[in-house]
């Protein structure tokens, strides 16, 4: 029986963000916004969902007066991403 795909990851924007965060140490909000071609509002909402699930950590700081939002993936997020990719492979093999 095929595993159900994690609904939190099976969304275009969240999957895009998680793919980027899997391949880097950390990324700024502006980098994620540019690379995923999303709006600030939508990205912010999706990042909060990933953070609430414990998949990512969001750190807020300042560079001078400019606010900085830095995101990095957690162990739980890495595990969820790996499980998601394995489930995808099963679907493709089917």
């Amino acid at each position: 029986m095929l595993k159900e795909l994690d609904p939190l990851l099976h969304s275009q924007l969240r999957l895009g963000v998680m793919s980027i965060l899997m391949s880097v140490e950390s990324a700024e909000f502006t980098f994620l916004k540019e690379k995923t071609n999303s709006t600030a509002g939508n990205l912010s909402v999706q990042l909060d969902k990933l953070s609430e699930a414990g998949y990512i950590t969001i750190e807020k700081s300042f560079n001078g007066k400019k606010p900085l939002t830095t995101c990095r993936i957690n162990r739980k997020g890495m595990k969820a991403f790996e499980d998601y990719v394995n489930a995808l492979k099963d679907y493709i093999k089917k």
């Binding site: 099976h10 275009q12 999957l15 895009g16 980027i20 939508n42």
Partner: peptide, 28 residues
């Protein structure tokens, strides 16, 4: 990448993952 819940096929998901990872390469 606006639609949050666009129905992705497994192939589309893998393509998306690969394209996002490519975005981060060459950034050392």
């Amino acid at each position: 990448m606006e639609s949050e819940n666009k129905n992705l096929s497994p192939e589309q998901s893998l393509d998306l993952i690969a394209s996002m990872i490519r975005q981060t390469q060459g950034n050392v």
